[in-house]
Design a protein around this nucleic acid. Structure first.
Length: 222
DNA sequence: ACCCAGGGTCATA
DNA sequence: TATGACCATGGG
């Protein structure tokens, strides 16, 4: 009843995961050297290709600005200039400022790490500029919480496999994944990365399930 | 030239 | 609740 309209079987979701993992291996998601870098990257990658985010992150590193204190000390206009390659640079500069102020108030990422997920998730969602996907990227990859990330690719993949209609509310899909798979941080981390990687391949590769023979559909485009 | 990318907010109905 | 406009760079 927690996820009306989306009750996938554990078998179906595991089947897709196993084929993707067999095809692409361990991708090492999320790339990043610190919790803070992952959080910043999660904001910068909103509706943006990752290669553009890498340029912005490189600019921040070169300016020695990829830390909470350094970013807080940076004027918004200067921050916007550094992250220009990632697009939406004005609004993202504001969002990073919101995130940094929230972090500082909460005692940095050490303070956040001490919070229970049930308290941390609403707190993050309360930051202007952090929606459900960015929030869950942060929870799953920066703080290793068992939260499944839902993105447009995941929706299309579910739709193509007939597991969901695709336009269900975010929370419905997230709850469906988590209930079917059970809490498994390493698998959640790998799974989302694999879906994105599979989309990047743009159907150049077509993993096929050994057991059921069903191919894993390409989640690129509608 | 057009379409898309590892989304989210806000105004409007 | 549910659309639509807006944000903006860079690669295919």
């Amino acid at each position: 009843m927690t996820s009306p309209g989306f009750s996938p079987s554990q078998l179906a979701l595991r089947c897709i995961f196993d084929q993707l993992h067999r095809t692409y291996g361990d991708l090492g998601w999320w790339p990043g050297d610190s919790r803070f870098e992952i959080m910043v990257g999660a904001v910068l990658t909103q509706n943006t290709a990752w290669r553009n985010v890498e340029k912005a992150l490189a600019n921040l590193k070169a300016a020695n600005a990829l830390s909470l204190d350094a970013l807080l000390a940076l004027p918004t206009a200067a921050l916007a200039e550094l992250i220009r390659p990632s697009g939406y640079f004005n609004i993202k500069a504001d969002r990073l400022g919101n995130l940094c102020r929230f972090l500082a108030d909460a005692g940095g990422d050490t303070g956040l790490a001490a919070m229970a997920t049930d308290a941390l998730r609403p707190a993050l969602l309360g930051v202007k500029g952090i929606g459900p996907e960015t929030c869950d990227d942060i929870l799953l990859y920066a703080f290793d919480r068992p939260v499944f990330v839902i993105d447009a690719y995941t929706r299309r993949l579910l739709k193509r496999h007939g597991l969901a209609q695709g336009d269900e509310p975010y929370e419905t899909l997230r709850a469906g994944f988590e209930r079917a798979l059970g809490p498994d941080v390493p698998m959640y981390q790998a799974y989302h990365g694999l879906i994105v990687e599979h989309a990047k391949q743009a159907c150049a590769v077509r993993p096929r399930c050994v057991g059921c023979g069903l191919a894993v559909s390409c989640p690129k485009r509608a």
